[in-house]
Design a protein around this nucleic acid. Structure first.
Lengths: 333, 333
DNA sequence: CTGAAAGCGCTAACAA
DNA sequence: TTGTTAGCGCTTTCAG
């Protein structure tokens, strides 16, 4: 096209009105007569005028961009989440700015600051620590939704799943199938999700009268290879588990991989969160379903509602989870 | 912190210099005496001044944001790519704006337009059609790198892998292991990558004197479930294949899943592109390695170089591929 | 219903 | 080496 873009002045000149009127028409103000509106729109079409979002943002202090800050974009859960959010955002004319935290609280703060400086119109954040209090100071009245964590901070909209119930259900399921020695794979991080899943595990054991055995608990499985190693160590220890509850899909991937390579497909297994090929393995992997899509949809819609001016009290949206039996969770000891 | 952010004026007032000097210091101009620089930096620190990127962008026509436009953020290949790019960009102080095309050329154009309007400082694009000529008109002298496709348009930096060689190597490998009836799984889309992989397949067959059998070629496998169905159909047809070459990991996921569920792990299999658990299955899946990380690193670095002013001729970076034998590709007919 | 003029925060000419 | 002035493109008082 042309090398320099048309401005409100060009449109005003061509349509014989003032720039203010152009602005009104472009922004859909009703305070404009039909005839002038038509004139302006003609000029807009002819010149291919598009509002300059930068200038708009400088002037108004807002923008047509929303920020999404998550642990890692390459994590399947978050990439699915970001994908849905981008889709919904685009439909409403918003772009998406992404930022990863690498689980580093300092970097998380930095990313949020960046977003604020960019005047994002809304923010979706998967916080890393229990201490989100900095958000109160920084965020002003920016529409914001916390994903998956952050329950303890009142005043923020949150979306997540029933972590405790999920952990409880998974453990109870294995107990019902006769297991007494059930290993737990998780992360050491102070992630609330994992903490809750683990306390579900604890409670299920307690309710069944099974004493907790610390030697069956691994809290260092943040990446698949570590989980693989941990699995092998668990199985070769003196009094090995007969079942494994893995509290996140990344750990499951590593653990299942190790089980298959070691030929130990006799070990019962339940994963919190699905993963590719989980249903193609033999035995297929039973899971606590934590589909990212509904979570993303709920979070995105809540944020867009807030951005559209919805001003009710903060909502804590908790999505239910279900246990999907596929075989691995129904293996007897 | 404070409710309104400090501006150059605040800093200027506090340090007793003009706003221009503040601007100079903030932007690292050398035309400033050490003493004044120190004064200004003190004031900056005291006020917590941060340059307003919006105003900066409006004035300069550039920004500290780079755009990344890909098929889909949730696709494992692209999410890994975006992740690496974001990491590198962040290290240089840039944010990342994402846009998905859903393989729709119109939407691709729209996303690129959006990015341009946002004054992105650079653009990473995985184009969808053979016709990228619109980029010539739109993009001006914006630093831009095309990922994975777009070879035919001279004048652009591109990064990709040896698609033809990969297709050839995979097919040749299966031929060497005695197969004559080798199925091809691909997508109908005019994606150059797939086209090249397929012509590698054709050439390998031709060089081995094996006639092409159209009944073994499926070009509708854009999603895993379709590939799963296609696989079952291939295996139940009158003269079934004894080996499968799947030209993208999504199709492989579906196909492998179907093979396992049908108990047909006797079929030889090579996948172009790795996927989770590929090495944990029995047999483990042989692959043509197409690791997104080196591709992303090359693309990101090339883009950042361009943004830093590198002005050499357009480079076509083609990364080598290797065949990784894991078992499934070495099964005899 | 419409317009003139000011200014968001910054950087670029041009002087001094 | 430093400061003054203008203006990026837009929206917004405040008049008309």
């Amino acid at each position: 096209m042309s090398t320099t873009r048309a401005t409100v002045y060009d449109v005003a000149r061509l349509s014989g009105v003032s720039i203010k009127t152009v602005s009104r028409v472009v922004n859909g103000s009703l305070q404009v007569s039909e005839t002038t509106r038509a004139k302006v729109l003609d000029a807009v079409a002819e010149l291919g005028y598009v509002r300059n979002p930068i200038a708009h943002s400088l002037r108004t202090g807002s923008s047509d961009t929303i920020g999404v800050v998550v642990d890692s974009i390459s994590d399947h859960f978050f990439s699915a989440l970001v994908s849905v959010v981008e889709e919904r955002a685009l439909a409403k004319g918003f772009s998406v700015l992404i930022g990863s935290t690498g689980r580093d609280p300092g970097r998380e703060r930095g990313q949020v600051q960046r977003m604020l400086q960019q005047n994002v119109a809304g923010l979706l954040l998967a916080p890393n620590t229990s201490d989100h209090s900095y958000l109160l100071g920084t965020a002003g009245d920016l529409p914001m939704v916390l994903i998956d964590r952050g329950w303890e901070l009142p005043g923020f909209d949150t979306v997540g799943v029933q972590d405790h119930s999920g952990g409880y259900a998974a453990t109870q399921h294995l107990l019902r199938h006769g297991h007494r020695r059930i290993a737990f794979l998780g992360e050491d991080i102070r992630l609330e999700t994992i903490t809750h899943r683990r306390s579900g595990y604890h409670d299920a054991l307690a309710d069944a009268g099974v004493p907790l055995d610390e030697s069956l608990i691994r809290t260092d499985c943040s990446e698949a290879p570590i989980a693989a190693l941990a699995t092998l160590e668990l199985l070769t220890q003196p009094n090995p588990p007969t079942a494994i509850f893995s509290s996140n899909p990344r750990a499951s991937l590593g653990s299942v991989s190790a089980l298959h390579r070691a030929g130990r497909t006799d070990v019962a297994f339940v994963s919190f969160g699905d993963f590719d090929l989980a249903d193609a393995l033999s035995p297929a992997i039973s899971i606590i379903d934590q589909d990212p899509t509904p979570i993303a949809v709920a979070a995105a819609d809540r944020l867009l509602d807030r951005m559209a001016g919805e001003s009710g009290p903060a909502q804590q949206i908790v999505l239910p989870i279900t246990l999907i039996e596929r075989g691995s969770g129904e293996i007897a000891p």
